[in-house]
C-alpha cells in the first residue's frame, strides 16, 4: 500500500470521524451525567435526519438552515422522553434503561419503516458534490463543513459546560448526585436537560450529516455501535475523549476498509470496541476506576 491512497483515506476518515464524534458527544454527555446508556441514540439520529430531509423536500429548507429548527426540536423530544419514560424505568438497575431504550429504538425504527418504507433518501443540494483537493484527496464540501461544524459544536458544548450555570449544575450532578441535591439543584430537571441537550446535539449532527449522507429507517443502527465505540474509546463521559475517539474510529474504519475491503472495514471498529471494553473500560483518556 502506498501513501498516495493512504493519505486521502486517512483524511476522509478524519472527516467521517468528526461526525461520529458529534453523535458520540450526545451519548457521552448523557452517560456522564445520568450514568445510563441510551440505546435509542441511533434511532433518534434517524428521526433527526428525516426531519432535515422533509424540511428540505417539503419546504425547500436547506439542511444548514435547518440547524435553527431541528436541534431545538430534538432537544424537546429528548427532554420529554427522559421525564416521561427513562426516569420511570430503571428500578435501580441500569440494564433496565438499556432495555427501555432498546424498546424505544425498535418502536421508532419500525414506525419509520412503516411510514417511509425502507427506501434510502438523499437531499440533492447544488453544493453536495463539489469537492476541494487537499493533499491529493478530493473531499466534498459538505464533509469539510461537517468537520468544522463538529469541532465548533464540541467547543461550544465545552464552553457551555464551563461557563453557564446550567453547565455547572450538570457537572455538579455528574460528580455527586446527593451533594447536588443538597445545594438545591433541581435534579429531575437537570437530568432531563442533559438528556435533551444530548439528543439536541443529534439534531446538529443530522443537519451537518445530511448533505453528504442519506437517510433510511435503519440508518441509525450503523451509528449506534460506532457511537458506543467512540464513547468507550474516549472514556465514558469525556468530551475531549469523544472527539479524539471519533477521529480515531473514523480513520480506523477508512484504513480498515482500504486494507480489508469495504464490507470488512467495520470489523476494525468492533475490534476496537471489544478490545477497549475488555482491557481498558475506562477509555484511553479516562482514569482507572
Amino acid at each position: 500500500m502506498n501513501s498516495a491512497i493512504l493519505l486521502p483515506s486517512i483524511l476522509n476518515g478524519t472527516t467521517t470521524g468528526a461526525l461520529y464524534a458529534l453523535v458520540a458527544l450526545g451519548l457521552t454527555l448523557i452517560y456522564g451525567v445520568l450514568h445510563i446508556i441510551n440505546f435509542a441514540h441511533g434511532a433518534l439520529l434517524m428521526v433527526a435526519l428525516y426531519g432535515v430531509y422533509f424540511l428540505y423536500k417539503l419546504f425547500g429548507i436547506d439542511p444548514y438552515v435547518s440547524l435553527l429548527i431541528v436541534p431545538p426540536l430534538m432537544f424537546c423530544i429528548g427532554y420529554v422522553l427522559q421525564r416521561l419514560v427513562i426516569t420511570r424505568a430503571s428500578h435501580g438497575r441500569d440494564e433496565n434503561i438499556l432495555l427501555v431504550t432498546l424498546g424505544l429504538s425498535i418502536v421508532i425504527e419500525n414506525l419509520a419503516l412503516f411510514f417511509f418504507k425502507s427506501d434510502t433518501q438523499v437531499v440533492d443540494t447544488p453544493y453536495g458534490f463539489e469537492v476541494v483537493e487537499i493533499f491529493g484527496a478530493f473531499l466534498p464540501y459538505p464533509k469539510i463543513i461537517a468537520f468544522v461544524g463538529a469541532l465548533v459544536t464540541a467547543g461550544a458544548l465545552w464552553l457551555f459546560m464551563e461557563r453557564t450555570d446550567l453547565g455547572r449544575s450538570i457537572r455538579a450532578l455528574a460528580k455527586e448526585r446527593k451533594g447536588a441535591q443538597l445545594v438545591g439543584i433541581n435534579v429531575p430537571h437537570v437530568f432531563a436537560m442533559s438528556f435533551g441537550i444530548g439528543v439536541g446535539v443529534l439534531g446538529i449532527a443530522a443537519c451537518l450529516l445530511m448533505p453528504s449522507y442519506y437517510v433510511s429507517p435503519q440508518v441509525g443502527q450503523g451509528f449506534v455501535l460506532i457511537a458506543f465505540t467512540v464513547v468507550v474509546l474516549g472514556g465514558m463521559g469525556s468530551f475531549g475523549g469523544a472527539l479524539i475517539g471519533g477521529l480515531i474510529i473514523g480513520v480506523v474504519e477508512a484504513v480498515g476498509g482500504l486494507v480489508l475491503g469495504e464490507s470488512l472495514g467495520q470489523i476494525g471498529i468492533f475490534a476496537v470496541f471489544i478490545l477497549i471494553l475488555l482491557f481498558r473500560p475506562q477509555g484511553l483518556l479516562g482514569h482507572k476506576v
Partner: peptide, 11 residues
C-alpha cells in the same frame, strides 16, 4: 414493521 412496533412498545 408494525408487529415490531407492538413488540417494542410491549418491551
Amino acid at each position: 414493521g408494525l408487529n415490531m412496533v407492538v413488540f417494542g412498545t410491549i418491551l
